[in-house]
Amino acid sequence: MTGMWVLLGTLVLGLAAGGLLTARNGRVRPAPAGTVLPSAAGATLPEPVAEALDPAAPVTLVQISTTFCAPCRQTRALLSSLAERTDGLRHVDLDVTDRPEVARQLGVLRTPTTIALAPDGRELLRVGGVPRSSGLLDALKAYLP
């Protein structure tokens, strides 16, 4: 009988954890006011991220990906399409498979992660997982022309 309770408890905990992860996937999280990446102790932006910023674009979406990440391909297609049809929005995909220090400096714990940056390197918002395009666009409206 104890085995049955352990099995039931494990099942409930697994379902709760799965539900929590599903709810967090694709959710837009605004950055704290004035956050400049990386958020750790005033360090500068990693070189690949700094090079990706376009001073002419009000918002650059920096997608942090890895080679074997299936959701990264879906995110790349979604963000590229969104950037093509939205004025002032630029998309850059950074593969950090061979450069884990870039992900570490940015505080990225999973791929894909999308970070919206202003031309000066301020973090505007962050999305873990595949973003929902309508929610992302709504969150970016204040920064776009």
Rank of each mutant, 00 (worst) to 15 (best):
P55G: 03
I115G: 07
L61H: 06
D98W: 07
P119E: 05
A103C: 05
L94S: 00
F68E: 13
F68T: 06
R90L: 14
V92K: 09
T66Q: 15
A77W: 10
R110I: 13
L109N: 03
V92F: 13
R73C: 06
V59S: 07
E101M: 13
D98S: 11
S65D: 10
L109T: 11
P119T: 01
R73Y: 11
D87Y: 03
D120Q: 08
A103K: 07
Q105N: 08
T113G: 01
V102K: 14
D93A: 12
L124T: 01
P58W: 09
Q74V: 14
T86R: 06
D87Q: 10
D95H: 05
T86Y: 04
I64Q: 02
F68S: 13
R73F: 14
A57M: 15
L79R: 00
T60I: 02
L78M: 11
R122M: 06
T113A: 08
R85D: 10
P71K: 07
C69H: 06
T66Y: 06
V92G: 03
I64L: 12
A118W: 01
Q63W: 06
S65Q: 08
L124W: 06
F68V: 09
T114A: 11
L89I: 10
V102F: 09
A103T: 00
L89W: 02
S80I: 00
A57G: 04
T111R: 03
T67E: 12
R99I: 02
V108N: 05
P112Q: 07
A118Q: 02
L94I: 11
R73N: 12
A116V: 03
L79C: 03
Q74R: 13
S80F: 02
A83M: 08
V96R: 04
G107A: 09
D93C: 04
L78D: 01
I64G: 05
R76I: 06
T86K: 03
A56K: 04
A103S: 15
L106V: 07
D120I: 03
D95N: 12
R90M: 12
R99A: 15
R122F: 06
R73S: 12
E84G: 12
A70G: 13
P100V: 07
A57Y: 10
P100W: 15
G88M: 14
G121S: 10
I115Y: 07
A70I: 15
V59A: 09
H91R: 03
A116M: 05
T66S: 13
A70D: 12
R90S: 13
D98L: 11
L82Y: 00
T114P: 00
G121I: 04
D93I: 02
R99D: 14
R110T: 15
T114L: 10
L89A: 10
G88Y: 10
Q63I: 00
G107D: 06
L61Y: 05
L61V: 02
C72R: 08
A56F: 07
Q63C: 04
T75S: 10
G88C: 14
S80Q: 09
T66G: 15
D120K: 00
A57P: 03
S80L: 00
R110G: 14
L124P: 01
A56R: 11
T75R: 01
L124R: 04
V108T: 08
T67K: 12
R85W: 05
L109Y: 11
